[in-house]
């Protein structure tokens, strides 16, 4: 058999900038950095709460400083991208069945938003009560 000389095209490191859907994908994956940041932020908050009223006030003043506010606005944008994409992909990732019948994707997505609203309302009530 004769050896066929094939050409392998190298994949550019910027492949994800060449198509909108690839770019959205990489942004979605980068949301992981901001999820981790919020975990660190909340841990610092919990630590401050544990240390007493003065430490708690100091933490909130620090959280109101311009640099942190800008960072948190950006992080919030990425977090919402995570929430929306996660909810949208759920019906594809798992076939939900109730009483043996498949649940339509729109219903699965909508019920997750209902869950988000219920959880958010509960947390809001718990914190501000």
């Amino acid at each position: 058999m004769t050896e066929v000389r094939t050409y392998r095209r190298p994949m550019s490191i910027w492949w994800w900038t060449k198509k909108r859907s690839y770019f959205v994908f990489v942004m979605r994956e980068l949301s992981s950095i901001f999820v981790a940041w919020f975990v660190v932020f909340l841990l610092l908050l919990v630590r401050a709460v544990g240390r007493g009223g003065a430490a708690y006030d100091d933490f909130l003043d620090w959280a109101a400083s311009p640099g942190i506010v800008v960072l948190n606005f950006i992080a919030m944008g990425f977090l919402l991208l995570h929430t929306v994409t996660w909810f949208n992909l759920t019906p594809q990732a798992m076939a939900v069945r109730v009483h043996g019948r498949p649940v339509p994707p729109a219903v699965v997505i909508a019920s997750q938003y209902v869950g988000l609203v219920v959880v958010s309302a509960f947390v809001y009530w718990l914190v501000t009560r």
Partner: peptide
């Protein structure tokens, strides 16, 4: 889970799923 496989499928198979 880039999801592009499903988007380009001309036969509407859902490989990503």
């Amino acid at each position: 889970f880039v999801g592009e496989c499903t988007r380009v499928c001309p036969k509407h198979v859902d490989p990503a799923g």
